[in-house]
Structure formats: structure tokens, C-alpha cells
Design a protein around this nucleic acid. Structure first.
Lengths: 193, 193
DNA sequence: AAGATTGTGTGACATAGATCACCTCCATTT
DNA sequence: AAATGGAGGTGATCTATGTCACACAATCTT
């Protein structure tokens, strides 16, 4: 149940087996079936979550009822609403399993304990968040400056298996267009190349 | 020269005077006059930079010659291209002073030293980057889901003095529209309330 | 098996925002 | 004082994308 987390942590920092064994005691394993929610908007995000297996999405719903996807959480990634988790305020995000998933949850007290007791984990999270920031900045700049088609191509390049695993209307709401626009885009791309 | 940095660091973590005194030895103070560049695209970003005073912007230039602003770096903020800084690859960003500025630069070796020698700084940067990630995710979601007018209003709300300090065409390129569109938006907003 | 739900495609039209062209207003330089 | 360049406003179009409506297939549900 902790294989992927162990592997990921070892890729970024060096820790002893004792330290990792200690870390393991702070996580709560959880299985989440497809279409079930880990977080619904209005709730406080009580956990930060590592995806051992499966696929999730975190998204908001706007006033018109349209969904906007912040993130697909794949194996080896972290999901959660950092802001709500840290401040204890109600979240605006929903997190839903798109496939049957195996998760490792950690509460805020446990997370703080981990950061205090094992400085290497402080570094692990700094690097993790750092990489996430770089990726998010890139996506932001791409969203500001590129066309829908460019954003779609980039997504397929970054996550080649995404279009097999999630329905197109979710991909559309990730790149920030309607499902109709993405559908037309795809047929253009097929015919025009 | 280190007042604001000291204040900001003390707001997030607890460190001793000795630790901060040590940190001070690792930074290089630098004054940068308005319109001068701290980084130009194609160069490697050699420093991560704290803004003690002044205002900078980091931006990219696309194939058509249009500028897209990632960030305004105000007093108390950090600027730089994290990716280029960490990997040593050429940056795609430009960083330019919009006002005469006073900066504190730190090289990668010094930064690593600081993180290794003073664990509290590891935590400081983790929290700093964490807050930056939250803000960037918000801006991304806003860019994906809101209209240009909503994005403009949000910017004014988040940074009330920004419109006095930077020209409108830069605000336009921050929210991801052309200067003409922002200009029309503003006149609509004035007439329509 | 029938009906409901979900995902996708596509036509007709509406609209936000881009593009291009030109103008005015200021501040800076010479 | 004249000349230059940057900033911003505005009209006339053009275009990408959104909206609404309907069709159809593939799954789920009862």
C-alpha cells in the first residue's frame, strides 16, 4: 500500500527506513470507488492525500453550474485543497474518484508532526510544492497566451494516456473550453492533419 | 537593506538573530533602476531575488511578439524563474524593473547552503512556495472560468494600488487580454456603474 | 427488455475578445 | 520650441469560442 509513496519519496530525498516506517504510521489508507467523493465543496479539507493507485479529479462548480478542473490526480500525485487544509476554511473544491483508487490520507496534526519530526520530509514537501508551482505557472501562462488547440495538444503531450482514461468533456473543462468546442477542435485536427 | 526580508521571515518562522545574521552573508544586495533587466530570456536565471523595495515584472514574449506577464514582484515578494534557477536551463522569462528597486540576490550554491545550514529556512521556503502555489492555482482557475471583466475586478481588489503603479497595457497582459479590450472594458465599467 | 443516463457529435446563431487603423495626450529629449 | 516615443482611447471589422438545440450510440438501472 505504501510502495509508490516510498518510491516517490526516495526519488527526491534521502531518508532512513526508520523515518519512513514512522511516516507510515501517520497515514490512513483508504480505498475510494469510482464516482465517490473525497471532498465536497462547503466541507473543510481534512486531509492531504497521496494517490497510490487510481485517478481522481479536483474541480470547482461555478454559478452557472459549469465545472472547472484544477487537477487530475494520478498515481504518485498528491491531491487536496491546500488552502482549506491549512486554514480550516470551507473548500470550494470537489474531489472525485474517476477510477477505483487507493489513497493515503494524512491529517493536519499528523502532517505537522511529520514535518517537525522528520526534517527530510519538510524538504520533500518543499520540493514537491516547488515542482507543482512550476507546472502550475506553466499551465497559467499557456492558458493566458495559447489557443484552445495549443492547450489541448500540450495536454496530450504531457499526459499521453489521459484521453483514454477520462471523458472528453472533462478534458475540455481542464483546458478551459466547452465540450462542443473541444469536439470540433478534435475533428478539425483529424481532418487537417 | 534587510528590513523587509527580516520582517517577512519573522512573520512565517522563528529564527535566532545569529541564523538571520548568517543568512544575510549569503545575499548580494543590488539596486536596479527602472527599465533595467534582472533577467533576459535565453539566459540562465542565476539568482532567486527578494524585493526589498520597488516593483518588477516577469514576463514572456510569444512568437507574435506579445508579452504575457506572469508576476508583478512587489516589496516583500520573491521573483525569478524557479525552473531555470533549479535546472540551469535557459529561461524563457524576462524580469524588468518597473520602478527603481532594491533587491537581495541569492545564488543557487548559497541558497542550498542556507537550506542545509538553517532548517528553519527550509520551512520558510516551503511555506512561501505553498502560498504562492495557492495564489497561482486561484489565478489559473479564475483565468479558466471568469470573463476578462471579472479577472480585472479581481486584480484591482487583490492589488488596489496596481493601477496607479503600472501602465494599463501591462495589466492587460497580466489578465490575458489585449490593451484595446481592457481599455473598452474600463469605459464600460465606468459608464455601466 | 425498456427506459434512463452519460458521452459525444454537429448545425445555426450569438458574442467576447482580437486585430488593424488611426487619433490624442503627455512627458522626455534635443 | 520642435520632435520623438509611450500610453491610452475608439471605430470597423474578423474570428474563436460559447450557447442552444437536437441526434445518436453506449452503458447502466430497474
Amino acid at each position: 500500500m505504501f510502495e509508490i509513496l516510498h518510491k516517490k519519496v526516495n526519488e527526491t530525498i534521502t531518508i532512513t527506513d526508520e523515518e519512513f516506517a514512522y511516516a507510515k504510521t501517520l497515514f490512513v489508507p483508504k480505498k475510494l470507488r469510482k464516482k465517490r467523493f473525497l471532498l465536497e465543496d462547503g466541507e473543510v479539507c481534512m486531509y492531504t492525500t497521496f494517490v497510490e493507485k487510481g485517478l481522481l479529479r479536483s474541480f470547482t462548480i461555478d454559478d452557472k453550474g459549469n465545472e472547472h478542473i484544477l487537477q487530475f490526480g494520478m498515481q504518485g500525485w498528491w491531491v487536496g485543497d491546500l488552502y482549506s487544509f491549512l486554514t480550516g476554511e470551507a473548500s470550494e473544491y470537489n474531489i472525485e474518484a474517476l477510477e477505483d483508487s487507493e489513497l493515503l490520507l494524512i491529517t493536519k496534526p499528523s502532517w505537522n508532526l511529520l514535518l517537525d519530526e522528520v526534517p527530510a520530509f519538510e524538504r520533500y514537501f518543499r520540493i514537491l510544492i516547488q515542482n507543482n508551482l512550476i507546472a502550475t505557472q506553466r499551465r497559467l501562462m499557456c492558458t493566458i497566451s495559447a489557443t484552445a488547440e495549443e492547450r489541448y495538444s500540450k495536454l496530450l503531450k504531457d499526459f499521453p494516456d489521459i484521453s483514454q482514461r477520462v471523458p472528453q468533456h472533462m478534458i475540455a473543462s481542464y483546458i478551459g473550453v466547452t465540450r462542443e468546442t473541444l469536439s470540433r477542435l478534435r475533428s478539425q485536427m483529424i481532418s487537417g492533419n
